[in-house]
Design a protein around this nucleic acid. Structure first.
Lengths: 349, 349
DNA sequence: CTGAAAGCGCTTACAG
DNA sequence: CTGAAAGCGCTTACAG
């Protein structure tokens, strides 16, 4: 069963391939209704589907988008990808998924591969920790390749690209401020890698909330992690020793780690320790004590990313603005009011 | 900056495109070292990368694999996808990710799209609940399209395809048997949709373990869910009323739901209720009480799937066997020994 | 050692 | 209303 081609149809219909192509593509050349019907009928009978390689080669349009992501098994990125993929399908695009394991070298390799495959646009969640070897090359290629692309989540400050991200600083602020409003003064912070801008911004939000409340910043209360559960476990330990009453974990995974460390130490949450996370991944709601956290709308962000690339594809001089999603506090049960002002407070547990 | 083509190189080098193609592809035609070097040098200077659409069109090989999956944001599938994607990259393949939201119609649409794009093989995790409208069409197409493919996870019994899955019945047996060995006799079971073979098999394992232990099967103790956390919450309630001492939840997500329902009811785990899950997703280890569960090696299964398609691609008459991964009991803290025999028991909490 | 030619499956001016 | 021809960017016999 070879695939049927336009040529097969032409032969059976006794017309030229030009005619077949035209009726199948609805070209306006007033083709007689008779041959039009005949061609369509035969095409259906033969279950004709155009070879997209050939179409792409000639039209320079593949209806294909590349999605480069650090770790698809990470729930946050998984939702980003899902949002993107679903929206792409709605808009008639297929997506190439590229998993980089946070290696900028793979960013570059994949970008090349995508370009070689003629994708119409690419969505990039850049790998790495800030000072990456291949990152500059990757962006250079992006600049020169004339393709539509958007930087998702891990945008750079002041860059000239269409970037989609969250107000991470605002998120860090809200999280810390909420803790402060609940009477906490000795607040630990487990950050992500500070070389990554988003991590740094969350940390800045923490600093700013402290400062605004007139609480003296203490560097000993800040620990740099790497967004893994294990970091939460380890770094929480040293924070416990400093007698913090609350911890702002810069992602939910590390917050889970804190839960675990607390359990081991016999600390009850939120009675003995309050926690706020960041991301609001699906599982946060189902932890032993449902986690209060800052929500990132991952699904919508992924969706937005493909909408933007597609807009750029259809309109090459589309304005490359920045799209900043709003962080949102999701109040659950991991924070205890230990005597702050009443607004924003919440008694439970 | 147009992409450089083979023609550009040929012009600059003053040779034919045939020559360029040959040296770049290492064809054995004893091309003089001089022109060989010249061509390569120019190709590098111009940063030449072959247009894969053209290559694919002519060679009928795209080094591309389609991966059709029900829900990429589900941790289990996310890991499957990650394993697949990483291994594909190692083997020189790019993957098209297709997210079906468990719709067989999308299975079919995507399969068509993949075929139109000339993928060399496809990995399918079929959608649906058993009695699906589009499922037969999808398999018919798979049969007739002459492509290498493997059915992953949701294999059908007795089908003639290369299927990769787990011994689900064995897993259900191990889970239930473990509960029995820990002295439980009144064991509830929250199943997946029984129209899905894998779900049914897990349930069969439960039935078999009961029977082997001489415990009378009670249909009131079995509730059919849909693998969502919410199912766990709801169905656990009715099981509590039946006074079960243990619950086998047929996936970890529903086990999380049971945790939540138990919490609401003031039931302690494992003191008042023992639970065993299925899948061993990342988060299970970090629940309030680390979940005892049956592990599915998702990463390896994804990896295996691409290895098999690639083998089939390279060797069209590759034997289409079945690959069955072994389920493995992961003992953690959600089961209490209430007086069973000592082997397999575990005192904690 | 090298090139002209055909062709992969399509689209699109252009000419009847 | 319809078709011959050129061409997308490549590969591969085939002929020198």
């Amino acid at each position: 069963m070879e695939r049927t081609t336009i040529k097969n149809i032409a032969e059976q219909a006794g017309v030229s391939i030009t005619t077949v192509s035209c009726v199948l593509n609805g070209r306006e050349m007033r083709i007689s209704n008779a041959t039009k019907k005949k061609v369509i009928k035969i095409a259906n009978e033969l279950d004709y589907h155009p070879n997209q390689l050939a179409v792409g080669l000639i039209t320079k349009k593949t209806n294909t988008i590349g999605l480069i992501i650090p770790d698809i098994s990470n729930t946050f990125f998984g939702e980003l990808a899902k949002g993107a993929e679903n929206r792409a399908a709605e808009l008639g695009y297929n997506v190439f998924l590229c998993n980089t394991n946070d290696s900028t070298e793979k960013d570059l390799d994949y970008l090349r591969a995508l370009l070689d495959r003629g994708v119409d646009g690419v969505i990039l969640v850049p790998s790495g920790r800030g000072k990456d070897e291949k990152s500059p090359e990757c962006f250079k290629l992006l600049d020169s390749c004339q393709k539509s692309f958007v930087i998702l989540d891990r945008t750079k400050t002041g860059d000239k690209y269409l970037g989609i991200s969250l107000d991470h600083k605002g998120g860090g602020f809200i999280a810390t401020d909420y803790l402060i409003k609940n009477g906490h003064k000795k607040i630990g912070c487990i950050t992500g890698p500070l070389g990554m801008l988003n991590s740094y911004r969350r940390y800045q939000g923490y600093v700013e909330a402290l400062s605004k409340a007139g609480i003296k910043y203490d560097d000993c209360l800040v620990k740099e992690g790497n967004y893994h559960i294990s970091d939460g476990v380890e770094l929480a330990e040293s924070l416990f020793r400093k007698k913090v009453t609350a911890i702002f974990a810069c992602n939910d995974l590390m917050a889970f780690g804190v839960f675990q460390a607390a359990r081991k130490r016999g600390l009850r949450i939120p009675e003995d320790l309050s926690i706020v996370g960041f991301d609001d991944i699906t599982y946060s709601e189902f932890m032993e004590v449902p986690l209060t956290t800052i929500r990132q709308p991952a699904l919508e962000m992924g969706k937005c990313a493909v909408e933007k690339v597609v807009e750029m594809i259809n309109n090459p001089d589309y304005k490359r603005d920045k799209i900043i999603f709003e962080p949102k506090l999701i109040e659950r049960n991991s924070v205890k009011n230990i005597g702050g002002d009443t607004d924003g407070s919440k008694e439970r547990a």
